[in-house]
Nucleic acid binder design. Structure first.
Length: 758
DNA sequence: CTGGTCATTTTTTTT
DNA sequence: AAATGACCAG
């Protein structure tokens, strides 16, 4: 047990500004910390937690909620460090993401919440499948109702804590009434399958806290101090949860920045932070406006941009780190040229300034932009990683393996069952399945139960019945095996990996890829499957509660429970979780995933109308402001060097299109940026032959010596030719070549792929 | 029932 | 460009 005497409180207040000190020293009552980018938010939060403990709070009385697992992990580490070893891993504050906290507690209080303890969590793909099924059941044409738009509508409703019945009551027009119909069917499917989607995790938790006074009081007593990070991104459901948890003691500290609110599309309600004082009267408010991260011109550029927004709360940012270098804004020929510009920018910093790769990041609005960048990084031999934590779990073979595992935990999970019943193919096809289904519906059986009675269904071939029997026996066998005790898995090696391996083998997934001759791709799939086994081997379950009360919940750990916890952790990974600051590589990620990160050098690409700001935001002032905040988040990730760029021409869905400059570029204060046009005004045709307009920003570093005037070269399309002239430049060096076939052409050196032959 | 080809559609961000 | 869905031959 830590005690107040052993924490060095002097250390906790060392090197803090006055507002930071105020935030750290605040103990009881509501506190709002408005933390601009780079304002030392993490330091303040961790030291404040340490200070609470120094003031007599027990670690397990503190609950901190974040948005990503990575943020939670980092906060936990830093708190432990700030406490100088006076807490161990079983006696730390509870630090979790909103979703994982809710998921865990809903298992614990499954009865009170009206749920099955072994419920499945549906990710967006599962949700999509379930919505398609509901569309069929609601007799609506899936042509007019795309799963995506329906999912968004249902998600919005749930974030507002409207269940299907409430939604239906307020549905008046054709559109909302149709959505209401689908919502009702969708929710019935989830209920029948014992499944929750992401939004349900929050909604069910909010409802549980609302409906059960007993449970609510347990939580309020248990967690005396509540902390919420990135408060500007909370939605209504999350607000209700926070409000309930803080009920009574009112010890709630929220940290956030309205200028970094970028999840409006996910239901985040910026008024939560703007109206905090109204929700929690007598709240103390601390504004951290000094930026300790970025140099002057970068801060000025960001501040100038964000001033174009109207819904704001705080004042201008300032820094004391000096002016630094001005950010550059470049116009490139196309996306390949732009990618080259990025790799050149980073290579120079790496070579000339000894900047390590891990101190650099490329940010973009949409994931599809990563492709071209990836290519350029490979070509330039710069080590990079793309932050896509979810990508691994989106792979077909992984989803299949996970579906088998989900079925072991929850045989009612029909989405999982449908996914794998014929994967690998075992002769249970569409026709067989629909016959089974029909028979099952008549008897009101769930799908897995109808499979058990396949022998009684008319019109099935013996072969089909045998396949089904084998399949059911296989699943039931695993279910029995999963009842084994696993309570020593915290100390000894956990039995999970062995089980996962068994399922992958016995299901035939392994054999499917092993036996195929499609070696290249299937080899990779096999490797992914073994990676899944390793992931399960390394899995350590979070205790339901750490030390203190309710420890008995941590006993009785069976293999199924361990498996359920593993599947839960897998369902709730985010892209940002994959960012490893020690990886020694450049990180490529979306602007959204970049929130909370910082790098010495940052490149933001695609500053074009319809991209940043995104198409969907154009014509909508609220969304436009969110896009601007997104751009603001991007700029403020940079400590010392920032390069922004756009391509004059970009290939979009297979079409080469001219782009328009992003309005945000013209909003940047001209005194704090440098613009350099690397493109050329004249027409660009698809032979990749560009004509230079003028010779700006020449550089002698280009290896133009490769192609001296007069040498003979070969071009893939035009054949042999003689070099007439060469214009060296840092980017887009051009070369005039006289071809016998098409006459003289001016080509861009790096695209023409010329081969010297004489 | 399976596995192929052909046509159509897609428009963002993510727990 | 890529992914999904419909359709059809074996």
């Amino acid at each position: 047990m830590p005690n107040a005497m052993t924490i060095d409180t002097e250390q906790l207040f060392a090197n803090l500004t006055q507002p930071q000190r105020e935030a750290v020293s605040h103990v009881d009552g509501p506190l709002l910390v408005l933390a601009g980018p780079g304002s030392g938010k993490t330091t303040v939060v961790t030291r404040r937690i340490a200070n609470l403990i120094a003031n007599g709070a027990a670690p397990w009385e503190i609950l901190a909620l974040t948005f990503t697992n990575k943020a939670a992990g980092e906060m936990r580490d830093r708190v432990v460090k700030a406490l100088g070893g006076y807490v161990d891993y079983r006696n730390t504050p509870t630090v979790a993401t909103f979703h994982s906290f809710c998921a865990r507690q809903l298992r614990r209080y499954a009865d009170a919440a009206g749920l099955a303890e072994n419920y499945s969590i549906y990710d967006s793909a599962d949700q999509r499948d379930a919505i398609k099924l509901s569309l069929k059941k609601a007799d609506l044409d899936s042509k007019n109702w795309t799963p995506g738009s329906v999912a968004a509508a249902i998600s919005n409703a749930k974030n507002q804590l409207m269940d299907a019945a409430t939604y239906s009551a307020s549905a008046t027009d054709f559109y909302t009434r149709s959505i209401s119909k689908i919502y009702t069917h969708y929710q019935k499917i989830l209920k029948d399958n014992d499944a929750l989607d992401f939004d349900d995790l929050l909604m069910k938790m909010a409802n549980l806290l609302r409906d059960s006074e007993d449970v609510r009081e347990q939580f309020q007593n248990r967690f005396q101090y509540l902390l919420i990070d990135e408060y500007q991104d909370t939605n209504h459901a999350q607000f209700v949860i926070a409000y309930a948890l803080a009920g009574g003691h009112q010890n709630i500290c929220v940290v956030g920045d309205p200028d970094q609110s970028i999840y409006g599309w996910r239901g985040a309600d910026i008024t939560n932070i703007l109206e905090f004082e109204e929700h929690f009267p007598n709240a103390k408010i601390v504004a951290l406006g000094q930026n300790f991260r970025s140099t002057g011109h970068i801060v000025d550029a960001a501040a100038g941009l964000i001033e174009n927004n109207s819904r704001r709360k705080h004042k201008r940012l300032h820094t004391e780190l000096g002016e630094g270098e001005k950010p550059t804004v470049s116009v490139c020929l196309d996306e390949h040229h732009e990618a080259r510009l990025v790799t050149d920018f980073f290579s120079r910093l790496h070579e000339e300034d000894d900047l390590p790769w891990k101190e650099m990041a490329v940010l973009y609005r949409v994931n599809s932009l990563s492709r071209v960048l990836e290519e350029a990084f490979r070509k330039a031999k710069i080590p990079y990683v793309i932050a896509r934590g979810t990508a691994f779990y989106d792979r077909k073979e992984i989803k299949d393996a996970l579906s088998y595992l989900r079925l072991v935990v929850n045989p009612n999970d029909e989405v999982a069952l449908r996914r794998i019943i014929n994967t690998p193919t075992r002769g249970i096809g569409k026709t067989t399945l629909s016959k089974i289904e029909l028979a099952g519906v008549l008897k009101q059986l769930r799908l897995f139960d109808s499979l058990k009675e396949a022998a009684m269904v008319e019109g099935l071939t013996t072969r089909a019945v045998n396949s089904i029997k084998k399949f059911v026996a296989m699943i039931e066998n695993w279910q029995r095996a999963a009842l084994a005790d696993a309570s020593d898995s915290l100390i000894a090696t956990n039995p999970l990996a062995g089980f996962v391996e068994q399922v992958i083998r016995e299901s035939g997934l392994e054999a499917q890829y092993k036996n195929s001759k499609n070696n290249e791709e299937d080899q990779e799939r096999l490797e992914n499957l073994s990676e899944l086994i390793s992931a399960s081997a390394q899995f350590v379950p979070e205790p339901v509660f750490s030390e203190g009360e309710n420890e008995e919940d941590n006993e009785d750990l069976t293999l199924v429970r361990l498996l359920a916890a593993f599947l839960e952790s897998v369902a709730l990974v985010s892209d940002a979780d994959a960012i490893d600051p020690e990886s020694g590589t450049v990180t490529l990620m979306t602007l959204h995933a970049a929130k909370g990160m910082e790098y010495e050098a940052v490149a933001i690409v695609g500053l074009e109308e319809n991209l940043l700001p995104h198409m969907r935001a154009i014509g909508n002032e609220m969304e436009m402001e969110e896009e601007r905040r997104l751009c603001f988040v991007g700029i403020t990730r940079a400590k010392r060097r920032l390069q922004m760029s756009r391509a004059a021409v970009r290939t979009h869905r297979g079409m080469r299109e001219r782009t328009m400059e992003s309005r945000f570029l013209s909003e940047l204060p001209s005194g704090s940026i440098i613009c350099c046009d690397q493109s050329f005004d004249e027409d660009i045709d698809d032979t990749e032959a560009y004509s230079p307009r003028s010779d700006r920003r020449l550089s002698t570093s280009v290896s133009s010596g490769e192609f001296p005037i007069g040498c003979v070269v070969r071009h893939a399309k035009f054949g042999l030719g003689t070099v007439q002239a060469i214009t060296p430049r840092a980017i887009g060096a051009s070369v005039s070549v006289s071809f016998s076939t098409v006459g003289t052409k001016t080509l861009i050196l790096e695209y023409a792929k010329l081969e010297r032959v004489g």
